[in-house]
């Protein structure tokens, strides 16, 4: 082979993926030293933030091993404590949604509340009494009545009846004890438009909810993220002769928009490999055989964190780092890491 393949590449072939595992240990490649050392790690570690919004973030974590990157992902999904509705006390429910289903639906509503102020509610202890330190109380009551001022001839239930639809915004927060200090902005659903139930005249929902801290491992409703995942940075190498003319146009069409551009010489050049979705379309065409090498950078992780709204995505990621750190400390404390 003419040119040497970079060591941190995952190979994308037409029918398989090669070199998926990291090789950063001594003696993998004869004569090369890829063993881990702190200085090199410090030098290589980079974080680049693509964008951050209230609910979404995309950022790059470069220079770590897949195991570390995956640990953050896993912790974000399943181990960051979040507040969610766990106990529903139904006073009255004459809607067509059964009590269990209604409770299940309520549980899945993401709540905007800082979980740091709360302590764990001990579920296993039957004598454990809920206090303001561990339980947030919410109320929901809605009663549907016919709307006497409904416009003539309408069939829209929202106009015909009052409270025909019960939304997450109808949930009322009832501060207990010192909670009004801790949550001055109150606690509410992050998305007020979540439909909980539909009612018709004469139907009524009246219930009290207790929210507690939990983690995603126990139930998906405690997960602070809709999903958190990463992908590896795609690489596209045009090898050998440049691709020109009509072929270049075809080459460009094999990738999503903006990945390949055609320069002034009419040659196809890689503009932004990051935008590639790795559809491997180019590998299907025999005319590009041997002209392009696809790959992904094994230590470049492009994270996407979608928050449910309980915390900002950066907060979630930082918490995952903290949690991982805490775990390491525990291991070290008991000398388990040896």
């Amino acid at each position: 082979m003419a040119e040497k393949k970079p060591r941190n590449r995952v190979g994308i072939e037409a029918d398989r993926v090669t070199d998926v595992s990291s090789t950063d240990f001594p003696g993998y490649y004869p004569g090369e030293d890829h063993s881990w050392n702190l200085e090199k790690f410090q030098e290589n570690l980079k974080i680049h933030i693509e964008y951050i919004s209230e609910l979404n973030a995309e950022f790059d974590l470069i220079g770590v091993d897949a195991s570390i990157a995956n640990a953050f992902r896993r912790i974000m999904i399943s181990e960051i404590p979040t507040l969610a509705i766990e106990y529903v006390y139904i006073e009255n429910n004459t809607s067509i949604i059964q009590d269990e289903v209604l409770a299940h639906r309520l549980g899945l509503i993401p709540l905007k509340a800082n979980p740091d102020y709360l302590r764990w509610f001990k579920k296993d202890d039957p004598d454990f009494e809920p206090t303001d330190y561990d339980t947030v109380v919410l109320q929901l009551s809605a009663k549907c009545t016919a709307n006497p001022n409904a416009p003539e001839g309408t069939t829209d239930p929202k106009l015909l009846y009052n409270n025909a639809h019960v939304y997450a915004r109808d949930i009322v927060y009832e501060p207990q004890g010192r909670q009004s200090e801790w949550f001055p902005e109150g606690i509410a659903a992050t998305n007020p438009d979540i439909l909980i139930a539909k009612l018709r005249p004469g139907q009524e929902i009246d219930l009290t909810m207790h929210c507690i801290l939990g983690i995603g491992q126990d139930h998906a409703k405690f997960s602070p993220v809709a999903t958190a995942s990463y992908r590896l940075l795609p690489t596209i190498d045009i090898i050998g002769e440049p691709i020109t003319g009509e072929l270049a146009k075809k080459f460009r069409s094999c990738f999503p928009k903006g990945v390949i551009s055609i320069n002034s010489k009419g040659e196809a050049v890689v503009k932004d490999a990051r935008k590639d979705t790795v559809s491997r379309e180019v590998l299907r065409h025999p005319e590009f055989e041997g002209r392009v090498r696809l790959g992904r950078q094994r230590d470049h992780f492009i994270y996407t964190v979608e928050s449910t709204g309980a915390m900002t995505p950066d907060e979630i990621f930082l918490k995952s780092v903290q949690l991982l750190k805490k775990k390491c400390q525990i291991l070290r404390k008991f000398n388990l890491a040896a």
Binding site: A69, L232, R280, R296
Partner: peptide, 9 residues
């Protein structure tokens, strides 16, 4: 589990 790419599509 491992965080690495699967070897097959």
């Amino acid at each position: 589990v491992s965080g690495e790419c699967l070897q097959a599509y």
